[in-house]
Amino acid sequence: MSKIDIGISENDRIAVAEELKKLLADSYTLYLQTHNFHWNVEGPQFRELHLMFEEHYTELADAVDEIAERIRTLDVAAPGTYKSFAALSAIEEVEGVPEATEMVSLLTKAHEQVVRTCRTALSVAQEADDESSSALVGDRMRVHEKTAWMLRAMLPR
């Protein structure tokens, strides 16, 4: 491949890509968690949660591809193994199968974590004057903020 020259210094490209790797890892971990809950949810809200979780993991599947491709656009290798995602993600794995309300609570917290990861990545991308990464991260942040709000609305006060 020829040398990259997109108007962002190598140091800035690497710094942005490192933050995007964390966002990718969080997003993939959340994808797996959501898919797991989709398969295993039970109870009176089964149908509603089963369908909602499917909507969420389908959206996340597209997101991880977009994030990984942005990392590649910055000329950095995207992580792609469970081991690398586990090392990079701030979202903790869930053992066993929680009950439905706990699933909603755990997913709410995970989406909020992704928002916090986005905020850090956005700051680094803005500092690097990387509008493309900033736009991507801003879009992801909005999705996760809205999803967390919708999940929180399902929880008892």
Rank of each mutant, 00 (worst) to 15 (best):
S2A: 13
I4N: 03
I4D: 04
G7R: 08
S9N: 05
S9V: 04
S9M: 07
E10S: 10
R13Q: 07
R13K: 13
R13H: 05
I14M: 02
A15R: 11
V16Q: 01
A17P: 00
E19T: 08
L20V: 09
K21H: 04
K21L: 00
L23K: 04
L23G: 10
A25E: 02
D26A: 10
S27Y: 03
S27N: 12
Y28S: 03
Y28F: 07
T29Y: 01
L30M: 07
Y31P: 02
L32M: 14
L32D: 00
L32F: 06
T34Y: 12
T34F: 07
H35Q: 15
H38W: 05
H38R: 11
N40S: 08
V41P: 08
V41R: 11
V41Y: 10
E42M: 09
E42S: 12
P44Y: 13
Q45L: 13
Q45V: 06
R47T: 14
R47W: 15
R47K: 15
H50R: 04
M52G: 01
E55A: 14
E55T: 13
H56Q: 15
Y57F: 15
Y57I: 09
T58A: 14
T58N: 15
E59P: 00
E59R: 12
L60W: 09
L60Q: 13
L60I: 14
A61I: 02
A61H: 09
D62E: 15
D62S: 14
D65K: 01
E66F: 03
I67L: 05
A68L: 04
E69S: 09
R70H: 12
R70P: 01
L74C: 05
V76S: 12
V76N: 09
A77E: 07
G80Q: 10
G80P: 01
S84D: 14
L88D: 09
L88I: 06
S89A: 13
S89L: 04
A90N: 10
E93A: 15
V94C: 02
G96D: 11
A100G: 01
E102H: 02
E102W: 02
E102T: 15
M103C: 07
V104K: 04
V104D: 11
S105K: 15
L106I: 11
L106A: 08
L107V: 06
T108G: 00
A110W: 05
A110L: 04
H111R: 00
E112N: 15
Q113I: 01
V115I: 09
C118R: 03
R119M: 08
T120H: 14
T120Q: 14
A121D: 07
A121G: 14
L122E: 14
S123I: 09
V124Q: 01
V124A: 05
E127N: 08
E127Y: 00
E127M: 04
E127G: 02
D129K: 12
D130W: 11
E131F: 10
S133T: 00
V137S: 04
V137P: 01
V137N: 02
G138M: 09
R140F: 07
R140H: 04
R140T: 13
V143D: 13
H144A: 13
H144M: 10
E145G: 02
A148P: 01
W149R: 01
M150L: 15
M150H: 06
M150V: 05
L151W: 03
R152L: 04
M154A: 07
M154I: 00
L155Y: 03
R157Y: 02
R157I: 06
R157N: 13
